[in-house]
Amino acid sequence: MGARWIKISVMYFAIALAFGLFMHYTVQLQWKATHAHIGVLGWLSTGFIGLIYSFYKEAAETALAKAQFWFYNIGLPFLLVGMMMVYLDVPHWLFEFCVSGGGIAVAFSAVLFVVNIFKHVKCTSS
């Protein structure tokens, strides 16, 4: 499971770089919050989750980890597209569906991650 998270994070890294270049060369800096979320939630958080699950393999194979994976990786694209809709002329319901639906899915995924880590990662004393 850890390798999956890391591979997805690398895709978000490439998207963040490309989006940043797009913003720079078109001087459309209003997209900065979306760019930051691609980098932080897409690249950094996803990669860090992958590293944690690579180290704690027993936590990575639980039903909680699998549910977390799907909620996060379905919700995050909706959230990011919804954030871009702020500056586009789209129906308000579509904007709300993407931002709220995606945001709630990502937040729920974060809760599952916290529960999974506390439940399945054991402290060892040396």
Rank of each mutant, 00 (worst) to 15 (best):
G2A: 07
A3D: 15
W5A: 09
W5H: 12
W5M: 04
I6N: 04
I6T: 06
K7S: 14
K7H: 11
I8D: 01
S9D: 09
V10S: 05
V10P: 03
F13N: 02
A14S: 11
I15E: 03
A16F: 15
L17V: 15
A18G: 14
F19Q: 12
G20I: 13
M23K: 12
M23N: 07
H24I: 14
Y25H: 13
T26H: 11
V27D: 04
V27Y: 08
Q30Y: 10
Q30C: 02
W31T: 07
W31F: 15
K32F: 13
T34L: 13
T34A: 06
H35I: 02
H35L: 05
H37C: 04
V40H: 12
L44Q: 12
L44E: 05
S45N: 13
S45L: 14
T46P: 01
G47E: 03
G47M: 05
F48R: 04
I49M: 13
I49F: 03
I49C: 05
G50H: 03
I52R: 03
I52G: 00
F55E: 07
F55K: 12
K57Q: 15
K57I: 08
E58P: 01
A59K: 03
A59E: 11
E61F: 04
E61V: 07
A63R: 15
K66W: 00
A67I: 10
W70T: 00
Y72V: 01
N73L: 07
N73P: 01
I74L: 05
G75L: 00
P77W: 09
F78C: 03
L80R: 06
G82D: 09
M83Q: 13
M84V: 00
M85P: 00
M85I: 01
M85E: 11
V86N: 11
V86I: 12
Y87W: 14
L88C: 10
V90R: 07
P91I: 10
P91L: 09
H92T: 04
H92L: 14
H92N: 12
W93M: 04
F95K: 12
F97N: 02
S100I: 00
G102N: 01
I104R: 11
V106N: 05
A107G: 13
S109L: 01
A110E: 00
A110K: 11
V111D: 07
L112D: 11
L112H: 08
V114C: 05
V114A: 14
N116S: 09
N116V: 06
N116H: 12
K119H: 08
K119Y: 05
H120T: 07
V121W: 02
V121Q: 13
K122V: 04
K122G: 00
C123N: 10
T124R: 14
S125M: 15
